[in-house]
Simulated scan of single mutants.
Amino acid sequence: MNVSRRDEDGPRRVVVGVSGSLGSLAALHRAVAEAGRLGAEVLAVLAWEPPGGEFGYRRSPCPPLLAAVRDAAAGRLATALGEAFGGARPAVPLRSLAVRGQTVPVLVGLAGRPDDLLVVGAGRGLLRRGLRPSVAAGCLRQAGCPVLAVPRPALQHDLDALHRRHFWHLPEEPVPAR
């Protein structure tokens, strides 16, 4: 009997990185649209690490703290899914998974089949780019499947501009009289 790869490994998947940011929620909506078009299921993934990273945790492990961080990550993912869909279920099969690990290796590892589609949010401000490598760029370099990088929504650009304006133009506070 001739069995296709999809039959062996389950239905086609659209894997999407979700952090709770507006950009990741836009990526989640796009992933659902792509899954509907492809007849696929969506796997929404939030990657998390212990405070201080894996190296810091190995130096001074604290299982109760690790459990609290894991539970917080699962809660953040559930909240993001609730906010994205307003409590309703999308029209495609959707599974969610909070995974311990760095974001790019986790996403690339889960979207490991050639017929998977990996969807990530793209575009960050200059400051964030300088502090942390881009997840979208890392996924584009390392993934063995197609990657769809969804641009930041216009609302995020407006919010960033408002924040910059507020940050750089703070009124001087009067010095209290003695």
Results as ranks from 00 to 15, higher is better:
residue 9 D to P: 00
residue 9 D to R: 14
residue 10 G to D: 07
residue 10 G to R: 03
residue 11 P to W: 00
residue 11 P to G: 11
residue 12 R to E: 08
residue 12 R to M: 06
residue 12 R to W: 01
residue 12 R to C: 07
residue 13 R to P: 05
residue 13 R to M: 08
residue 13 R to S: 12
residue 14 V to T: 04
residue 14 V to W: 00
residue 15 V to R: 03
residue 17 G to I: 11
residue 17 G to P: 02
residue 18 V to T: 10
residue 19 S to K: 06
residue 19 S to D: 15
residue 19 S to C: 08
residue 21 S to L: 11
residue 21 S to G: 13
residue 22 L to V: 01
residue 22 L to Y: 04
residue 22 L to P: 10
residue 22 L to Q: 09
residue 24 S to W: 05
residue 24 S to V: 10
residue 24 S to A: 14
residue 24 S to E: 08
residue 25 L to S: 14
residue 25 L to G: 12
residue 26 A to M: 04
residue 26 A to D: 15
residue 27 A to E: 14
residue 28 L to N: 01
residue 28 L to P: 02
residue 29 H to K: 11
residue 29 H to D: 13
residue 29 H to R: 15
residue 30 R to H: 15
residue 31 A to W: 05
residue 32 V to K: 02
residue 32 V to L: 03
residue 33 A to V: 02
residue 33 A to H: 04
residue 33 A to C: 01
residue 34 E to V: 02
residue 35 A to M: 06
residue 35 A to P: 01
residue 35 A to W: 00
residue 36 G to H: 09
residue 36 G to N: 04
residue 36 G to Q: 10
residue 36 G to K: 03
residue 37 R to F: 06
residue 37 R to N: 00
residue 37 R to P: 00
residue 38 L to R: 14
residue 38 L to G: 00
residue 39 G to N: 06
residue 39 G to Q: 03
residue 40 A to D: 05
residue 41 E to A: 12
residue 41 E to I: 00
residue 42 V to N: 07
residue 42 V to Q: 02
residue 43 L to E: 10
residue 43 L to F: 01
residue 43 L to H: 12
residue 43 L to N: 08
residue 44 A to E: 08
residue 44 A to T: 08
residue 44 A to D: 08
residue 44 A to S: 06
residue 45 V to F: 05
residue 45 V to T: 11
residue 45 V to L: 05
residue 46 L to T: 14
residue 46 L to Y: 11
residue 46 L to Q: 12
residue 46 L to P: 04
residue 46 L to E: 05
residue 46 L to I: 00
residue 47 A to S: 15
residue 47 A to R: 06
residue 47 A to P: 13
residue 48 W to P: 09
residue 49 E to Y: 08
residue 49 E to M: 14
residue 49 E to N: 11
residue 49 E to L: 15
residue 50 P to G: 08
residue 52 G to W: 10
residue 52 G to K: 11
residue 52 G to M: 05
residue 53 G to W: 01
residue 53 G to H: 07
residue 54 E to D: 12
residue 54 E to P: 01
residue 54 E to F: 12
residue 55 F to P: 00
residue 55 F to I: 14
residue 56 G to N: 09
residue 56 G to P: 11
residue 57 Y to N: 09
residue 58 R to Q: 12
residue 58 R to A: 14
residue 59 R to K: 07
residue 59 R to V: 13
residue 59 R to I: 07
residue 60 S to V: 13
residue 60 S to E: 15
residue 61 P to G: 07
residue 61 P to C: 12
residue 62 C to I: 00
residue 62 C to E: 15
residue 62 C to A: 15
residue 63 P to E: 12
residue 63 P to C: 11
residue 64 P to M: 11
residue 64 P to Y: 10
residue 64 P to G: 07
residue 64 P to S: 10
residue 64 P to H: 08
residue 65 L to K: 04
residue 65 L to W: 00
residue 65 L to P: 02
residue 65 L to Y: 00
residue 66 L to A: 13
residue 66 L to C: 05
residue 66 L to I: 07
residue 68 A to R: 15
residue 68 A to I: 01
residue 68 A to Q: 13
residue 68 A to M: 13
residue 69 V to P: 03
residue 70 R to F: 04
residue 70 R to W: 03
residue 70 R to G: 11
residue 70 R to H: 15
residue 71 D to Y: 06
residue 71 D to Q: 13
residue 72 A to H: 13
residue 72 A to C: 01
residue 73 A to P: 02
residue 74 A to W: 04
residue 74 A to M: 03
residue 74 A to F: 02
residue 75 G to F: 01
residue 76 R to K: 11
